[in-house]
Each structure stands twice: as structure tokens, then as C-alpha cells.
Design a protein around this nucleic acid. Structure first.
Lengths: 231, 231
DNA sequence: ACCTGAACACCGTTCAAGT
DNA sequence: ACCTGAACACCGTTCAAGT
């Protein structure tokens, strides 16, 4: 009897098949997202990457939503929170933190979309919340307003990033966003002073302006609004 | 040879099989959404409802995103725009219009989620845009600010509704939202004055308050902010 | 306890072929 | 032009069975 000649060989066919673990799964998911995009971070595709079947992942992750939430929290580790402890105007520093958060989500808009629907509660997210609250407190925003302002600010940032998500099932090329924009632009051009006077009057101005400036203006609007609006 | 005995019978087995048309497809999609929810408004399920195969729908609708956009525009027909031409404070009337829009989306949060990603450009949507711009103009908001304010207001309303969307692939029962909330509440309770002082200080206040009041406050924050923030 | 094969119940979209 | 059957290439999740 020759001793099991296959078992040792098959073990060496792939570089390594490390034991599954939640952190390993999440790390692989992050890698997969960076290389192929969030739309490929599915239970099945991820299992394939980990050399196992999809069912195995359910031991460590409740479902796809939880997986995406874990990926998001991992990513949030690279939000720049240093402005919190830097000298300078509190509003400028708050906008800096929020901009860092938004930039990060812009790179992964699908994740922003998840965050909008599945309320995050990971450690990194809590760090971000703490940072925003600290700056609002420094600015003298009363606690009751700060609680709600926090949501407003993060929701604005998250939604703005989510708007750039590829639509589910869209072809990889994704001219789909440009098509939407063209359709809206055509509709605006189609407005006349008779039918839709406001639209006709504003015209191109309605669609103009770089996203960056709109984002910054939005943050300022929210901060000014919060300072002028008691609960 | 007996003459095709099956053909006439099969024609009468179902009440009627009307010819396909874009408006018929959209109308059926709206019905289907009201009876089974947006998650069931898929090309395949809709085709089944129309007694045909999914491929047939692609003659009238480019893809699923366009189908959902058409359903949304149909729904937008019931936004109450009468406050535009009513006497009274312009801000109150604007908030009334926006609240009507938001209430509508709250009933179909999945649609709000689509609207966030696929910019609407339907007739009903343009009517809403025109209404909001008319009220901003009445309030003396300069055109350049009004253009951006429009986006801010509609995005806030849409995102707030989208937050209540059921997560993709969640079980029908959907205790999933409550679970998220519990997780966040637990995380907030876990904050101490040492680790996350701001979070600990605000505590329950952070999660308190009815959605309705938060929404109304949010609209006021945006309006006050817009009035105080030049571009 | 952890892991898995296999199944269940679905998806969107395309395309060659028919009428 | 309009419509379709069939296929391609996927999904999430569960469950009984194995180790």
C-alpha cells in the first residue's frame, strides 16, 4: 500500500490555504474590492477567492450587508482625523475631516450606498463620529443640535458619494451616468418660459459647477444653518 | 385534419393579453410594486405578470434602472404642488412641498435609493423642480444659490427616505433595520468619558427624536443655511 | 465547532430565430 | 418592427451531512 500520495501534493498546489477567520475574510474582501470593485465582493466570488464554498463564509459573517459594513469600517481607518487636534478655525477643520471622509467614499461609491441603508456602527465609524462631535462642541454648538447636525453632515457626505455609484447591473463601461446627465440636460434645455419658467431662466446654471465646489458649499450651508436653527 | 383546436382556446384562457406598450409595462410595474414591493419589480417577474418572456420588455425599456425611474416618475405625479400657488410664508410652503415628496418616498424607500443613484429627468420630476425653484425665487434666493439649493433640498429628502430601504437580499421580515439600530445604540452605550467623551456625553440624545421632527429641522437648517451662505 | 456540497429560488441581459 | 425561447453568467442563503 503506497501511502496517500495525493494529500500532501494538493496541499502544495496553491501557495497556502490559511484557516478561515473573520478578519481574514474581511481583509480578502477589501483586496477584492480594490482589484475588482465592490460589485464583485459577493459571497460567492469571495468564497472562490478563499478557495472554499460560499456556505463556509456564513460561519463568520451574517450576510452580505454585514460583509460590506465590515469592509467600509476597514476603509474608514484611513479618514484623516488629525484636523481635530490642530490649531485653526473649527469650521475649516471640520470641513477638512468631512472632506477626507467624502473623498474616501468617492473612491468606492457603492460602499457609500451601503452606508446610507445599513447604519454603520464599527469602531472606525465611531471614531469619525467622535471627531465630528468634538469639533461641533468646540464651535459651541449645543448638544441637542450637535446630535442632529452630525447626521445631517455625514448623510450629506455619504449621499453625495453614493450618487456616483454605478447602477446595479450596469455594463462595466458605465456610460450610464453620462446618459442620465444628458437626459436631464436635454430636459432643462427643453423648458421654455411658457412651460417651466424657473427652469428656463436658470438653464445651464442648474447643472453647472464642479462637484468639489458644490460639496464645500454644502458643508458651509449646513454649518451656517445649524448655527442659525435651534431645535 | 381538424382545424387548430388549441389556438382559440388558449387565447381565452386568460382574461386578456393586451399588446405590450411602454405605458402598459410601466403601469403594470407600478401595480406590482404596490402589491409586492419594489424588490419584486424585476424584469423577469414583470414579464411573468405580462404573460411574456423577459426579453420582450427590452423592446420598450432599456434596463432595470430605466424601469424603476419610470415607476418613480409615475409616483411623483401625486406630490402635492398646490402650496406653490397658495398664500402664506414661502418657507412654510416650500417645506410643505418637500414633505409631500418625502412622505411619498417613505412609502417606497427602494425607489428613493434608485433616485439617488440614477438622476431622474421625467416630466413629474421636472414639475417638482420647477415648484421648488419658484418658491426659492419668491423667497429672494439668488439664482446661482437656488440652483445648488435645489439639489441640497431634494438630496436631503431623498437620502432620508432611502435610509429606510430594505437591504438587498434581506429576509422579508426585515428586523435588519432594528438590528442596525441596536448595534449602534450598544456602541454608543459602550462609550466612556475616557475613550470617546463626546459620544459618552451625548449618549441617548444622539439617537433620540422622532424622524418627523428631524426632517422638519433639517429642511429649516438647509433654508437658513442657504440664506446665509453666498457662493 | 467548523466546514462543505448541493440545492433552492431567484437575478439581468443578449442573441439568433421566428412572425 | 416586434416578440420570443433559450442560453450565459451570475446572485444569496439554507440545510443536511460530514470532520
Amino acid at each position: 500500500m503506497t501511502a496517500h500520495p495525493d494529500a500532501p501534493r494538493s496541499r502544495r498546489e496553491r501557495p497556502a490555504k490559511p484557516a478561515l477567520s473573520r478578519s481574514g475574510i474581511v481583509a480578502t474582501a477589501v483586496e477584492l474590492m480594490r482589484s475588482e470593485g465592490l460589485q464583485r465582493v459577493t459571497m460567492r466570488r469571495l468564497a472562490q477567492e478563499l478557495d472554499t464554498g460560499p456556505a463556509s463564509l456564513y460561519v463568520y459573517v451574517r450576510n452580505t450587508a454585514e460583509l460590506h459594513a465590515a469592509v467600509l469600517d476597514d476603509l474608514l481607518g484611513s479618514v484623516d482625523l488629525t484636523p481635530v487636534t490642530t490649531p485653526g478655525d473649527w469650521q475649516d477643520r471640520l470641513v477638512a475631516v468631512l472632506t477626507s471622509y467624502t473623498d474616501l467614499l468617492f473612491a468606492h461609491p457603492g460602499l457609500a450606498q451601503s452606508a446610507l441603508v445599513a447604519r454603520p456602527s464599527g469602531e472606525r465609524y465611531l471614531d469619525l463620529v467622535e471627531a465630528v462631535l468634538a469639533l461641533l462642541a468646540e464651535g459651541g454648538v449645543p448638544g441637542d443640535r450637535a446630535s442632529w447636525a452630525l447626521d445631517l453632515l455625514l448623510q450629506f457626505a455619504t449621499a453625495t458619494a453614493a450618487e456616483h455609484a454605478p447602477r446595479a447591473g450596469a455594463a462595466s463601461g458605465d456610460g450610464t451616468r453620462a446618459e442620465d446627465w444628458d437626459a436631464l440636460a436635454a430636459a432643462v434645455r427643453g423648458a421654455t418660459a411658457d412651460t417651466r419658467p424657473q427652469l428656463a431662466a436658470l438653464g445651464a446654471d442648474l447643472l453647472a459647477g464642479p462637484g468639489e465646489a458644490r460639496l464645500a458649499w454644502g458643508f458651509r450651508v449646513l454649518l451656517n444653518g445649524v448655527l442659525h436653527t435651534p431645535r
